[in-house]
């Protein structure tokens, strides 16, 4: 058993009412069908790198991970204590990256990763998502990006990079908030924060290709750690921020970084 990595606090409360509401909300046609028809055939096992990396330890096989988390939550109608929920959180956050490879190997085409994501949503509703994601979510809420960068800092970083890179490519600019561009380019917040060179490199490619592009001063972070945490509200707000920027600027496409 790996060491516990989520929720090291002493909190012992669980709001089963919220869990029940969420379970009920989730249980559309798809989930109902998937939970019912899984034939427990085991074909998903070999598709999972967690399973393979742990020398085929069956506890890492995809369908088992779902049965032990979301499946059990439905079986118990949401009546679980915090210790059980913590164990589930270790599985949904620590034993699956929701890569969706198993869906390609399920004879019934059950979207296993989507059910893991649903499990994350329930853990998140009880504040059981990992601390690293909690911090990022707070930053999204405060600043619209996971690194808590201010709009001024971002724009300054871009200007600085444009200045440096112009030495290599004549006429290079990093257009901020330009109207009507063909591509509104967005980045991972780690780029302006830690690897500004990445933005310069993208700018060089756009410039050499004579692309009509821009970056928004607000709504430029295309990552969505809230989605990974299972925080639907922040996830939606973050996506909306980027789309609103594209609409505001009348951009034809949203480009996302590598």
């Amino acid at each position: 058993m790996a060491e516990a990595a989520v929720d090291t606090t002493e909190d012992q409360t669980v709001d089963t009412k919220v869990i029940k509401e969420r379970l009920d909300l989730l249980k559309g046609g798809r989930f109902k069908m998937w939970l019912e028809i899984c034939a427990h055939c085991g074909l998903c096992a070999d598709s999972c790198f967690f399973y393979l990396a742990h020398d085929k330890d069956p506890k890492y096989m995809p369908s088992h991970k779902v049965m032990k988390t979301l499946g059990e939550l439905y079986d118990k109608k949401g009546e679980v204590d915090r210790a059980t929920l913590k164990e589930m959180a270790e599985v949904v956050y620590g034993d699956c990256t929701a890569c969706r490879r198993c869906s390609m190997f399920c004879p019934f085409g059950i979207d296993i990763a989507t059910m893991i994501a649903a499990g994350r949503g329930i853990c998140c509703s009880q504040d059981l998502h990992p601390d690293g994601l909690k911090a990022a979510i707070q930053n999204y809420k405060d600043t619209g990006n996971q690194m808590a960068m201010s709009s001024e800092d971002f724009v300054e970083t871009c200007e600085w990079m444009a200045e440096e890179t112009e030495e290599e490519l004549k006429g290079l600019e990093i257009p901020i908030d330009k109207q009507g561009a063909r591509i509104m380019y967005t980045v991972n917040a780690r780029e302006p924060k830690f690897y500004p060179q990445d933005i310069a490199e993208a700018a060089m490619i756009f410039h050499a290709a004579r692309e009509n592009w821009t970056m928004p001063s607000n709504g430029w972070d295309d990552t969505n750690l809230a989605m990974f945490a299972g925080d639907g509200k922040t996830m939606t707000a973050q996506v909306k921020l980027v789309y609103d920027a594209a609409e505001r600027l009348g951009a034809e496409n949203i480009g996302i970084t590598e």
Binding site: E36, C38, A39, C106, G109, D111
Partner: peptide, 16 residues
């Protein structure tokens, strides 16, 4: 889950 004789088709249509 024997109902997969019909639901198989729905489920596969969805993931496909």
């Amino acid at each position: 889950k024997l109902s997969h004789m019909i639901l198989f088709f729905l489920s596969r249509a969805h993931i496909g």
